[in-house]
Amino acid sequence: MPGEKNRLLRVTEGLVALIQGFWTTFIHLFRKPITEEYPEYKRPLPPRSRARIILTRDPDFEERCVACYLCSASCPVSCISMQSAERADGRRYAAWFRINFSRCIYCGLCEEACPTLAIQLTPDFETCQYDLLTLVAEKEDLLVDHGGKNQEYNYYRYAGVLVDGDKGGHIQEARPVNLKSNLP
């Protein structure tokens, strides 16, 4: 009967597979382990690895963060909090900015949500502390003096809101409408 033959075949195949499996694991015994021993050897991580979070600066060396609250809104563990404030020139900035790294799960959603490329994740993952409170990072701990992954982008050149100077000075903007002119 073909059925019987099939069953026999299946049993044989099964047995062969079983032996193959055991053989495979067995020869693994004699292979060199691929483990990299961490504190002695530190593996270079790709730049897009997601670990410690930084706040970057734009090419004008201004803080990029405008405290728009989008990162805190997107954070699934609510570990980001901040307070926005207005600078004398009308530029919006974070009066304080706090990330609780004891809660952070390094998912990177904040980086994705950030419209100004301010908040960025870095490959630096060695942040363990014995005291939880020392894992609460403030703005001064987070702020770096470079642009991170994108050095060129400057949000305020596209924003279309006045920071200083006249309106219409941003990229792809026309001169302000002259209200008093009645010319065609």
Binding site: L162, K167, H170, E173, L179
Partner: peptide, 20 residues
């Protein structure tokens, strides 16, 4: 095309104007 812009006005202590 270019984005139209307007100059904003000071409208007192209560209302912020951002005409763009």
């Amino acid at each position: 095309g270019l984005k139209r812009t307007y100059r904003d006005q000071y409208l007192g202590a209560f209302v912020q104007h951002e005409m763009n």
